[in-house]
Design a protein around this nucleic acid. Structure first.
Ligand SMILES: [Mg+2]
Length: 323
DNA sequence: GCGACAG
DNA sequence: ATCTTGTCGC
């Protein structure tokens, strides 16, 4: 990796959310229940509730880690995995612990609902780090002679992540090189915390000095700072965010092929449309929105910048070959 | 009852 | 993102 590491380094040692979910679940007393969202809130953000559900669906030690005590926020018991969609086992377990259930819903839900978890508020820490990164973002062209545009993307098999860099020449717009790296990930996908899942593997691919990096994901089109900004600030390289769907911000002219996107009235991104597909461009780091947009347009191919398409295809290939 | 919150 | 299916809030 290029440059010194200081701001944004929490990403390199992401908190063990998986273990924290199991720890929280183990804190639910017998005879009580909690919800996926309550555990997510204890982690620091209700947006993590789906991730909590996914993690518990893969609980390697049912009963020991009592995931049967985690139910929907409306009081419905929900599924008990293991094998097939089934809630019978979950209901039986809960009733044996003294929890009353009627028509698949918890009786006296509010009085048996446990939420006093004692786990660290890790997502708050990550948000704080993202805010700090945001303050370090340079929103103007800040580079010497650029010779390459590098598309970055990731694919997965369970906890294995495959990162790909597709290096394109700015002299002739042609593919120069493809770099690949594999590493293991435990951090789940949580909306607005994508960096902590994908940036570790991608940071290993940042070693071309005369390049600007095109990242699959947002930069400043984010409530704090997206993965493109995170990688840019962490590695001190120019980066552009380019995503296929919008996370945050208001599209000013939805009909236009090139629309401004504003956040609190500030122009923070550009939506590029070509046929059915769209690319949402934003500043990652050390680039102006204009330059970022022009570079994306220059490589735009069927609605997506070619370096990203190639990186995506190669990442998918790497995953299939690893299977 | 349905849409959402990058990948 | 993957290839199975998870929650929340309007
Ligand atoms: Mg991707």
């Amino acid at each position: 990796m290029l440059g010194k590491v200081s701001v944004g380094a929490l990403m390199l040692e992401s908190p063990d959310v998986v273990s924290l979910v199991y720890e929280a679940t183990s804190q639910i007393p017998k005879g009580m229940v909690s919800t996926y969202g309550d555990i997510a809130k204890a982690l620091g953000d209700v947006r993590a509730s789906r991730a909590v559900g996914e993690i518990l669906s893969k609980n390697p030690t049912p009963i020991v880690v009592p995931c049967h005590r985690v139910v929907y926020s409306d009081g419905k018991v929900g599924w008990y995995s293991g094998k097939g969609k089934n809630s019978d086992k979950k209901i039986t377990l809960l009733e044996s612990e003294g929890v009353e259930i009627k028509n698949g819903s918890i009786e006296n839900f509010s009085s048996v609902r446990f939420a006093e978890f004692n786990i660290p508020n890790v997502l708050k820490q990550l948000r704080d780090e993202q805010e700090e990164i945001r303050e370090h973002v340079v929103e103007e062209d800040d580079f010497g002679v650029l010779r390459h545009v590098v598309g970055l993307d990731v694919s997965y098999i369970g906890e294995r992540s495959f990162g790909v860099a597709a290096v394109y020449s700015l002299e002739n717009n042609e593919l120069v090189e493809i770099k690949k790296v594999e590493c293991s990930v435990r951090f789940p996908y949580i909306p607005t915390y994508l960096s902590y899942r994908e940036a570790p593997v991608l940071s290993k691919l940042i070693d071309v000095k005369d390049a600007i990096y095109l990242v699959d994901g947002h930069g400043l089109l984010h409530p704090r700072a997206g993965i493109a900004s995170h990688l840019g600030v962490l590695c001190n390289v120019p980066t552009i965010g380019a995503a296929k769907s919008l996370l945050y911000g208001h599209v000013e002219s939805p009909e236009s092929n090139r629309s401004e996107i504003t956040i609190d009235g500030k122009i923070s991104g550009i939506a590029l449309k070509e046929g059915r597909s769209a690319t949402y461009v934003s500043v990652g780091h050390r680039v102006s929105l204009n330059t970022a947009t022009e570079l994306c347009i220059r490589f735009l191919c069927h609605g997506i910048p070619l370096p990203l398409r190639t990186a995506h295809n190669e990442a998918t290939l790497a995953r299939k070959r690893a299977t």
